[in-house]
Design a protein around this nucleic acid. Structure first.
Lengths: 227, 227
DNA sequence: TCAAAAGTGTTCCGAATACACCCATGA
DNA sequence: TCATGGGTGTATTCGGAACACTTTTGA
């Protein structure tokens, strides 16, 4: 270790040098009951006890931010292999009244069929539930803004990426997929145009979904190989 | 202060609980000599002594992330009122061999005519210079990737925002503005089409820029009021 | 047989692309 | 007068928006 480095560390790590804490907060989206919904946990402890908040964890010294997000995801939902992506980093001074916490937010998209409501844990937050983004309860910290930001990110990315597929299972019908798009975009789409747009991203199976009192719809899968 | 909160703070702030450090790194873009360029500082100290790095500061306990970015910008360039925006937060374990540092990156766009090369400071980094993004020197830490990421962000945003205007002064000719767009996009544009596209964002002045050995070009300003 | 929704072909429109040409200046 | 780049009108192309229509099922 060089002399300058020793110098640096001595000065930097001195006891009176304060560091902010770093947390990862997750915005877990899914679509249920034809609504975009977010996972929230009920806070048991101060501050904002009784209010709802995004699930989050403190970032450990031995894990990257992505790993922390994945760990939080797994702890809260038991899920792995879920699409997630960093959203934004929030650093206002009084986000958390206890102390300075910088929050790196992530969002994730969970297919409805993979949701097992998280079992109660021994953490401070015992209750967890999905809420429609249009009818959120009062939220702790700046979490309402984080959700709004994630909502916006998705609305933008739907048009030029395939993230919408992250919200359906392996197999799906086109009316189902279209509904996902409509919910994410917040507007209705024309059937014929929608199909033309995604035609090169899907593969038909020979299965049909029947049982409704109308014509059955074909079941598709996402095209895997690179076109 | 509630009992649970006291409990929390006692456990959380205990001396053996490690926190990562949080820094802000800046990608300062400008256009010079018809090239997109980035401000780099030469490292004097270990690690990566002698190599170039992005300018950055540690985030103080009394400032937000945006404020830290603004402070870094001011310290390194003396500039204020510059367009800047958060880019991404980098948290790999060994980004910095000294210790765990999480870096919140920002990018900023500086009009060429506002650049006064930063005077030497008493900081550890004494040399600073702009480098063309296409011919970067070897970079310290993960800063090459951060620049690539910022480059990509700009390329995308040019098409659906007005960030390109942040790189010209108050007054500009359309050939000048078009050149900015071409450099940011990395491709040539058709004159007539470019002008139609930005027609509703500009206001003509009655000044002309002459002196070349060809027809003078009209000087424009950015349209301020909301259309 | 009928309501309801799946599924498909065609027209319409506007924006982006491409092209063609004229204009003003300094050397 | 001529090379150079500024400036503008028009044709073409392409993708999205909108429309019209047929198909298949269960009640």
């Amino acid at each position: 270790m060089s002399e300058t480095e020793q110098e640096f560390l001595k000065n930097y790590n001195s006891a009176d040098y304060q560091k902010p804490s770093v947390a990862v907060d997750l915005v877990l989206f899914t679509i249920r009951d034809n609504q975009l919904q977010v996972l929230l946990t009920k806070r048991q402890a101060h501050p904002f006890a009784g209010m709802f908040a995004l699930p989050g964890v403190f970032v450990g010294m031995d894990e990257t931010l992505d790993q922390a997000a994945q760990r939080a995801l797994y702890q809260k939902t038991g899920l792995q292999d879920i699409y997630f992506e960093q959203l934004y980093t929030w650093g206002d001074l009084n986000r958390d009244p206890r102390m300075r916490i910088i929050s790196v937010s992530y969002y994730a998209l969970i297919p409805a069929d993979q949701i097992r409501m998280p079992k109660r844990e021994q953490s401070q937050n015992q209750d967890a539930a999905f809420f429609p983004v249009e009818q959120l309860p009062e939220l702790a910290f700046d979490h309402a803004e984080i959700i709004r930001y994630g909502r916006e990110r998705i609305r933008n990315k739907v048009n030029y990426t395939d993230i919408a597929f992250s919200l359906v299972g392996e197999e799906f019908t086109l009316p189902q997929l279209q509904k996902i798009y409509e919910i994410l975009l917040g507007q209705e789409l024309y059937k014929a145009n929608f199909r033309k747009k995604i035609a090169d991203q899907i593969v038909p199976t020979d299965k049909m979904l029947s049982g409704m009192r109308h014509r059955p719809s074909r079941i598709y899968q996402k095209l895997k190989i690179n076109p």
